[in-house]
Design a protein around this nucleic acid. Structure first.
Lengths: 180, 180
DNA sequence: CGGATATTGTTGGTACCAGCAACGAATTCC
DNA sequence: GGAATTCGTTGCTGGTACCAACAATATCCG
């Protein structure tokens, strides 16, 4: 989708976007509350990830990429970049890092001479497993304090929210600074 | 809190690694599901933030910092860094950026000659407001597709989860490289 | 008081991340 | 067989993030 991120501000332009569901005060309140909660959540989890992952001699981005490779089998670089919402050049360099550490490998695409197939090596798979287990243990300790129905609902609702957000983004929902 | 990140060997033992609630298969499933959902959620929202914020000629981190300054009044650098879970040097440089753009300002701390007080300028407050409104509008469009009770629950549960996670981190719940 | 000790914020250094632009190579479309 | 397109890499710029070391204050304690 390549959302043409622009450094140049759209400035006053901002022509009326897709009519937001005007004047539902409850919706507005929910959105504000969600926004606030998400900010906190993301801040905290990003820190956690940095904190937990980096000591395995791998960066957070590399870990995400490795995860994608393990979970979704061999991918082309473009696929990986799309999945991570990154520019392909960034993805390429992240793979460089993984390859240097022997955690992933590039191989020729059988059907397309331009493409490469990325996959996790045995060591990569193992490392990813180890990190995942740690994060999961962490998560379990956290969740243990909640009532079963609550944590169940958390997982489910967050899943739904993530899917919806992903769908919006995927659909090019409207990058703010478009208009070229 | 300064969580001694990095290659440095584990510090003194926090003796009881909080015994993970052994063998509750349902808990394990919930944790795994949550983990998966969170990954997706964070990936997507990070992208959204990058995409939406950068076109205002401000970086995502700068925006977070600005937000903190607006919401929590004047802060010292240490406070800001702690709030963002960042090293103070990183925070300092982020503030440099904000100051250069005239969005924040450093002033002397009345009671402590070493400290600085950071606050948002008028322009900073306005910009933050503008960005916030955009993100909120976005959020509203997304939430509009959910039933009111569902989105209400989302906001609430995510809030609880964020708080719990923050509390864990704050409590030093487990610094980085576990103690082997 | 007055010297050790601690804290606050800045700077230097290193490494990584992220995007755009331009490129060579391979593929696809006439 | 060419033009146009797509795939991945590389050069560039600038932001993020850590640690270590530092000067200036502040605090503690004899």
């Amino acid at each position: 989708m390549t959302t043409t991120r622009r450094r140049t501000p759209p400035r006053a332009a901002a022509p009326s976007l897709p009519a937001l569901p005007a004047a539902d005060p409850q919706l507005a309140r929910d959105a504000a509350e969600l926004q606030q909660a998400l900010e906190e959540l993301i801040r905290v989890y990003q820190f956690r990830d940095r904190d937990r992952i980096c000591c395995h001699d791998i960066s957070v981005s590399q870990c995400y990429a490795l995860d994608a490779l393990v979970q979704r089998g061999p991918l082309t670089l473009n696929d990986l970049a799309a999945h991570l919402y990154l520019d392909k050049s960034t993805a390429s360099r992240i793979v460089d890092g993984l390859e240097r550490k022997g955690l992933a490998r590039r191989s020729a695409h059988p059907a397309d001479g331009r493409a490469v197939l990325l996959s996790a090596t045995r060591a990569g798979t193992r490392l990813r497993e180890r990190i995942r287990d740690e994060l999961l243990a962490d998560q379990m300790r956290l969740l243990a304090d909640f009532e079963p129905e609550v944590r169940r609902a958390m997982a489910q609702l967050i899943g739904r929210l993530a899917s919806a957000a992903a769908a919006r983004v995927e659909a090019g929902g409207g990058s703010c600074c478009r208009l070229d």
